[in-house]
Each structure stands twice: as structure tokens, then as C-alpha cells.
């Protein structure tokens, strides 16, 4: 099967609704199918990467743990919206995964350069 480059842009926080979880499921499936998947964390999606999540009391899976599996699924291209991390006062050390920080211009070019772009 031929491969296309897929950019998945996440914009929603974990737990409050299912959007982030369903986008991650899609990323893992596409990667398991051998697709070339890049993930971009924008807006509240940055909270997915916070190490300190403990969702036991709300009986949810820990989405930080699931995010930490991304490299195991060969999803190594992980990008973080620069502006978002600044306004949320989140530093790289607080994140479960390292990512490349990108600005708005770079994001626009990433959208242009991928074959398929899905935003959740």
C-alpha cells in the first residue's frame, strides 16, 4: 500500500470530552497501518502531554501514558505550538514527550506540505 504523509492537529484537552482521545486512537491506528504520521499539539491539546496527570478518580485512561507510547508506534514527528506553551506556562520538562516547538508560520507551512491534514 502506498503511503501518504498525514498531519494530525490536536486542539482539545484530555478528559472533558472525547475529541483528544479519539484523535489519538486515529493516530495510533494510522501508524499501525504504516502511515507516515506527524502530530501537532495546539491550544489545549498541550495538556495531553502533562506528565502529572492522574485520572484514576474520574476512571479514565491516563492519556499522558498513551501519548508516551507514540514513539513505540513510530510516531516520532511530534510538534508543539510555541505560543500555546508560553501562554500556558508549561515547560518542556513538564511534558511526557519531547517535541519540536513551532510557530504559526511553521504550522502554516506544515499544513501546506503534508498530503492529508486532519484537525481534531
Amino acid at each position: 500500500m502506498q503511503s501518504k504523509s498525514i498531519l494530525l492537529i490536536l486542539s482539545h484537552a484530555p478528559y472533558g470530552d472525547t475529541r483528544a482521545k479519539e484523535a489519538l486512537d486515529l493516530a495510533l491506528t494510522a501508524a499501525a497501518f504504516g502511515q507516515d504520521v506527524s502530530l501537532l499539539f495546539t491550544q489545549d491539546a498541550l495538556y495531553l502531554l502533562l506528565k502529572s496527570q492522574q485520572p484514576q478518580a474520574i476512571e479514565q485512561k491516563n492519556l499522558a501514558n498513551i501519548c508516551s507510547a507514540l514513539p513505540m508506534y513510530d510516531i516520532d514527528k511530534i510538534y508543539i505550538e510555541n505560543n500555546t506553551s508560553q501562554t500556558k506556562h508549561i515547560t518542556a520538562e513538564q511534558l511526557i514527550l519531547p517535541g519540536v516547538f513551532v510557530n504559526h508560520n511553521q504550522i502554516a507551512l506544515m499544513i501546506r506540505d503534508h498530503d492529508v491534514v486532519l484537525r481534531f
Binding site: 498525514i6 491506528t29 494510522a30 499501525a32 497501518f33 502511515q35 492529508v116
Partner: peptide, 17 residues
């Protein structure tokens, strides 16, 4: 399964959400 969406993304000239 979600694999069907993956496959559709590859096969199609345009995937519109």
C-alpha cells in the same frame, strides 16, 4: 475499524472532514 479511514485517506484524492 479505524483502519478503514486510514485506507480511505490513502486511496482518495481528497479526504474532506
Amino acid at each position: 475499524g479505524l483502519g478503514q479511514l486510514s485506507e480511505a485517506a490513502i486511496i482518495s484524492d481528497r479526504l474532506v472532514t
